[in-house]
């Protein structure tokens, strides 16, 4: 069985039934599965419902129709909601708005403190989480002096300290400069390899999706496309919903349009290789 399973999930932000009929659902009949150890990318433009999906997957929101199952447990099961939340952690977009304490290690400790663990266990988890994101030397400092990328690494540590099996990055790189973005992606992908975690990356940067095993494209609350890396090759289809295919794919298509005959490429390196030959 899949670790996370969405079955025909529909969600309205209007809780009032009458007005809900008039408004469009934020998520509309979405079904997909996420397996353990997988890297999944959910892409889509603003308002496509991808952030709502994140909140549905750890029970912050409850689906109006359909079912979200995490490790076989429905997020509607109120009694086990904290079980689900400790298994599925979310890192949000703005690092400043997800920190609760003025001292970095106190902030990382917030999650395990909520679980009611004893202080020795909390200490070891905090040390481990800060080490995993490479921020150990800042443990006693305040987050205010750090860069956006460093702050976001601390936010990741805060989620890691809960020892989740799935980490959702909800546009966690959107506010960062390109260097910090790479830094965060490296940390996240390393955790997938070393800690055997599952990563769900919600993003509007198509190039981040190239690292994923499975790609889900969202549009208007519905799954527009779903599949492996081949999804990213469909330049025209992506463009029709306002997304850009990776640069290499677009260049290849343009060149083929003027008479070249290049094979399918995805990354810049592959394209360069092709062109050199």
């Amino acid at each position: 069985m899949s670790f996370i399973e969405l079955q025909d999930v529909t969600f309205f932000y209007e809780s009032d039934e009458e007005s809900a009929l008039k408004t469009r659902p934020a998520v509309d009949g979405v079904s997909f599965c996420v397996e353990k150890g997988e890297v999944v990318a959910i892409i889509g433009h603003n308002g496509s419902g991808k952030s709502t999906l994140a909140k549905l997957m750890n029970g912050l929101l409850e689906p109006d129709k359909g079912e979200v199952l995490v490790d076989g447990v429905s997020t509607k099961d109120k009694k086990r909601i904290f079980d689900i939340r400790s298994k599925v952690g979310i890192v949000f977009q703005n690092p400043d708005n997800q920190m609760v304490a003025t001292i970095i290690e106190d902030d990382v400790a917030f999650g395990p403190e909520n679980l009611g663990l004893d202080s020795k266990e909390i200490r070891s988890r905090v040390d481990w989480a800060l080490k995993s994101v490479g921020m150990s030397e800042h443990a006693k400092g305040t987050p205010f002096k750090l860069s956006g990328g460093q702050k976001q690494r601390i936010a990741i540590a805060g989620v890691l300290a809960l020892k989740p099996q799935v980490m959702i990055l909800d546009e966690s790189t959107a506010m960062l400069d390109p260097l910090s973005r790479n830094e965060i992606m490296e940390v996240a992908l390393r955790l997938v390899r070393e800690e055997n975690m599952t990563l769900i990356n919600i993003t509007h940067f198509v190039d981040e999706a190239m690292e994923a095993d499975k790609i889900i494209v969202m549009n208007d609350g519905k799954v527009f496309m779903q599949g492996g890396k081949e999804v990213l090759l469909q330049d025209e289809k992506l463009a029709s919903i306002g997304l850009e295919a990776p640069l290499a794919v677009r260049v290849k298509n343009m060149l083929n349009g003027v008479g070249y005959d290049l094979p399918e490429v995805l990354t810049d390196e592959e394209l360069a290789d092709c062109l050199c030959r």
């Binding site: 106190d106 395990p112 909520n114 009611g116 663990l117 809960l162």
Partner: peptide, 18 residues
């Protein structure tokens, strides 16, 4: 939202690191 997703239930049953 962030506090909820980090398992904040109530302040009473929390433990402290330090």
């Amino acid at each position: 939202c962030a506090m909820d997703s980090r398992c904040f239930k109530d302040a009473k049953n929390r433990t402290r690191m330090n």
